[in-house]
Simulated scan of single mutants.
Amino acid sequence: MTEQRTDRTGAPVSVDLRRTGAVGAYTVSVDDGTLAGRADFVDTPRATDERVFFHTEVDAEFGGRGLAGLLVREALADSIRRNLTVVPVCPLFARHLERHGDEYRAEGGRFRRPRPADLALVEETVRNAGDA
């Protein structure tokens, strides 16, 4: 999945889905290919239709261009296309769904509140990915 978009300045950016192990990410790159940010997630093993978003970060050099919001919106749109339930551990995802949850559901999206098991899954997955 690669989506071509523009940021708040009108500059072209691309959003990609990267799966290189247990932790996946939607990434945003600027026109010259420089990685500007990422929204990290893990898929739950017990429910293959759930995706836990746990961290979103944009490099300070690219701040103010709306890239974090772009990452969230693209990740959520892709979750709808993949028929996934979103579990927003990341405060940015949680805030977005708190404000726009009704609209997201109207577009066919599903989400639920995180549970302690989701937090434990993220901690274990990130720890194991760091050991690899």
Results as ranks from 00 to 15, higher is better:
residue 13 V to A: 00
residue 130 G to L: 10
residue 42 V to Y: 09
residue 34 T to Q: 11
residue 35 L to P: 03
residue 85 T to S: 06
residue 62 F to E: 05
residue 109 G to I: 03
residue 9 T to E: 08
residue 93 F to Q: 06
residue 24 G to Q: 09
residue 92 L to S: 11
residue 28 V to S: 05
residue 69 G to P: 00
residue 51 R to P: 01
residue 123 E to D: 15
residue 132 A to E: 14
residue 20 T to E: 13
residue 57 E to P: 04
residue 22 A to M: 11
residue 58 V to C: 04
residue 36 A to L: 12
residue 31 D to C: 07
residue 84 L to E: 13
residue 12 P to C: 03
residue 47 A to R: 15
residue 102 D to L: 11
residue 27 T to S: 04
residue 6 T to C: 04
residue 33 G to Y: 08
residue 97 L to D: 03
residue 102 D to C: 05
residue 98 E to L: 12
residue 93 F to G: 06
residue 45 P to N: 04
residue 109 G to M: 10
residue 55 H to M: 02
residue 87 V to W: 06
residue 92 L to Y: 15
residue 30 V to F: 07
residue 89 V to Q: 03
residue 51 R to Y: 13
residue 88 P to L: 03
residue 60 A to Y: 06
residue 106 A to R: 15
residue 22 A to W: 08
residue 85 T to N: 04
residue 3 E to Q: 13
residue 62 F to P: 02
residue 76 L to V: 05
residue 49 D to Q: 12
residue 49 D to Y: 11
residue 19 R to D: 12
residue 13 V to N: 00
residue 7 D to V: 04
residue 96 H to A: 11
residue 74 E to G: 02
residue 73 R to V: 07
residue 132 A to N: 06
residue 100 H to K: 12
residue 37 G to K: 06
residue 2 T to D: 02
residue 12 P to Y: 03
residue 19 R to N: 11
residue 73 R to T: 09
residue 76 L to T: 08
residue 35 L to I: 05
residue 61 E to N: 12
residue 86 V to M: 11
residue 125 T to I: 09
residue 73 R to E: 10
residue 131 D to F: 14
residue 65 R to P: 01
residue 58 V to D: 03
residue 42 V to P: 07
residue 82 R to I: 02
residue 97 L to K: 06
residue 122 V to P: 05
residue 24 G to C: 09
residue 101 G to A: 07
residue 69 G to Y: 01
residue 15 V to K: 06
residue 66 G to T: 07
residue 80 I to A: 00
residue 49 D to R: 08
residue 115 R to E: 15
residue 1 M to R: 03
residue 105 R to H: 11
residue 26 Y to K: 01
residue 36 A to M: 02
residue 123 E to G: 04
residue 19 R to H: 05
residue 121 L to E: 07
residue 69 G to C: 02
residue 115 R to A: 14
residue 3 E to R: 13
residue 86 V to F: 08
residue 118 D to H: 01
residue 125 T to A: 09
residue 21 G to F: 06
residue 37 G to V: 01
residue 36 A to Y: 00
residue 100 H to C: 00
residue 2 T to L: 12
residue 124 E to K: 15
residue 6 T to N: 02
residue 106 A to Q: 14
residue 103 E to W: 13
residue 50 E to L: 08
residue 88 P to M: 04
residue 31 D to Q: 13
residue 79 S to I: 01
residue 85 T to L: 04
residue 68 A to W: 12
residue 38 R to I: 12
residue 9 T to W: 10
residue 91 P to L: 05
residue 35 L to E: 14
residue 20 T to G: 15
residue 92 L to V: 15
residue 13 V to S: 07
residue 123 E to M: 04
residue 130 G to W: 08
residue 129 A to E: 14
residue 97 L to I: 01
